[in-house]
């Protein structure tokens, strides 16, 4: 049945494979260049992009929960903790037993606070030890040693409570990327910055007489951030969304002319409404979850 292919003589089929194995023998044992490392004593150098155990920079983290939303295995959760330095904060914890080490949580983090280290020896005897609380993964120094691949740039962030609608920033902008947009039902205008056009020249920041614009370092996002939308007719002005917002992008503003006339003829306090500053929004959907009246819509976010 066996057909001869080319010239495979007696020495051919014995000597040729033997030569190859002999060469490898000489190389690894006599010349001393083995292909393996003695693992527990020697370790391979792992690249920075390696996805191992998580670390979290508490100071950079804003507790937005974007990492929770992207996690395919739902292995992260937000934990309320009291920090002596930072006060009452919410920070994510990780269950390494469920984690598939895809690295999406680090990729989606808007403030690059979450990273995956090169630590891979995570095996343990008990399942409980895989559940890492925020304090277990805290490492504030790690983020500064990590070379970020995502590009950052400085952008003006608006503090709406200080803004007087003087339009000086819009006049100063050389790229014409600031537009004064009127806020509905509030007799005020707020500058809206076209972030795609902004060149980070910071002229608007120096021009602002009230110091309402603050220069902030922002990292580019690879994921489309869903924007919240307000249904004004349903908004009661309870400011639950403003309290929930991790980036302070929601301001409660009074609507003049909405005052109810009380029994004694006096006018009460005017109603409030939420105003979004979209430049600050990270698309976490916490305002949407906090609103009990269905006044905030967010397409594609689970409640």
């Amino acid at each position: 049945m066996v057909r001869e292919r080319g010239k495979v003589s007696f020495f051919g089929y014995v000597v040729r494979p033997m030569m190859r194995t002999g060469r490898q023998f000489v190389r690894s044992l006599i010349l001393g260049r083995p292909n393996t490392v003695l693992y527990p004593h020697e370790k391979l150098v792992l690249p920075q992009v390696y996805r191992g155990k998580h670390t979290l920079d508490f100071k950079k983290c804003i507790g937005c929960g974007n990492c929770l939303n992207i996690c395919p295995n739902e292995c992260m959760w937000l934990e309320k903790i009291e920090d002596p330095e930072l006060g009452k904060i919410e920070r994510p914890g990780v269950d390494l037993g469920r984690c598939l080490f895809c690295g999406f949580c680090a990729e989606v983090c808007p403030t690059v606070a979450l990273h995956l280290t090169t630590e891979f020896e995570l095996a343990d005897r008990e399942r409980e030890s895989f559940v890492l609380s925020p304090k277990d993964i805290r490492d504030d120094a790690f983020a500064s040693t990590f070379k970020e691949e995502r590009q950052s740039r400085k952008l003006p962030y608006l503090d709406l409570s200080k803004c007087t609608s003087c339009e000086k920033c819009a006049e100063e902008c050389p790229e014409m990327c600031i537009a004064m947009m009127p806020i509905e039902k509030v007799d005020k205008k707020k500058p809206e910055i076209n972030l795609a056009k902004c060149t980070s020249c910071e002229k608007c920041i120096t021009a602002c007489p009230e110091n309402a614009l603050v220069s902030t370092e922002v990292y580019e996002s690879y994921f489309e951030t869903p924007e919240p939308r307000l249904l004004l007719s349903k908004c009661t002005g309870c400011s639950a969304c403003a309290r929930a917002c991790p980036t302070d992008a929601i301001y409660m503003m009074e609507m003049p002319g909405s005052e109810k006339t009380l029994k004694d003829g006096k006018k009460g306090k005017p109603k409030k409404r939420a105003v979004f500053v979209f430049e600050k929004c990270v698309g976490c959907g916490r305002c949407f979850k906090a609103c009990k009246f269905g006044a905030i819509e967010m397409p594609g976010v689970k409640k």
Binding site: V2, R5, V8, G12, Y13, P17, R20, T21
Partner: peptide, 16 residues
């Protein structure tokens, strides 16, 4: 190619 095709056993178990 040396290691496999030079080996008679490999060829006998593969060809045809």
């Amino acid at each position: 190619e040396d290691l496999y095709e030079g080996s008679k056993i490999f060829m006998m178990r593969n060809v045809d």
